[in-house]
Amino acid sequence: MNMAPQLVGYPALELENLHKSFGKAEIIRGVDLSVAAGERHAIIGPNGAGKSTLFNLITARFPATEGKVRLHGTDLAGMAPYEINRLGLSRSFQITNIFPRMSVFENVRCALLWSMGYKYSFWKIVSRSRALTEAAEDILDQINLLNRRELPAGVLSYAEQRALEIGITIAGGADVIMLDEPTAGMSHSETDYIVDLIRKVTENKTLIMVEHDMGVVFGLADRISVLVYGEIIASGTPEDVRADPKVQEAYLGAALEEEH
């Protein structure tokens, strides 16, 4: 927020006429969106609007029925998730998606391997690398899980698993971070903590976040897009979106009332 996003210049992520149908049901119905580099962009909308589906299309978890996704100008068509990740895009999941039988430390370490250049190597011993261990410990420190490092990730509490989910997502040092409802199911204090964490780790990065908690959205986002029934009905600064009558009608009025 120290610089106006439109000044950063080129877009980090561009969606062009994106469509997705599951069978007959069209869930994403022509989404155009441009997220500038360095921007914190929130996507809000009612349950079932297609927010997670949009994330899944961008990261190639599902193929799009129609339309284009560009990351830093590169067309992502036909790429596998791992190829997209290597281009510097990393995401978290609404439903926690970790390595349950591996230790917390190993979860984070695995998330670091590719970006630290280890690739498919089988001639290096992971525990011998001081840099790797320190990087993993640094992430664990940030997500407050250092004292859980040797536990299997599957036995962590829900909030701890959510924190680990974020830790895994940011570990690889991607410059575009996508978080799907990072604070869902967390208490107030946990939410505050996670918001601070997100703010800290996405410094100078591009953040795209799906979030239901309006406090989090308005506190964190530079720009907001509102997705309703697979279409973006409004996109702009928090003030613009808050004032937009269409948004008031379709979604925000109800959501804001719920808040108070």
Partner: peptide, 9 residues
Amino acid sequence: ERAEFLGYS
């Protein structure tokens, strides 16, 4: 699936 989102095929 998660491994794929961490850069590994």
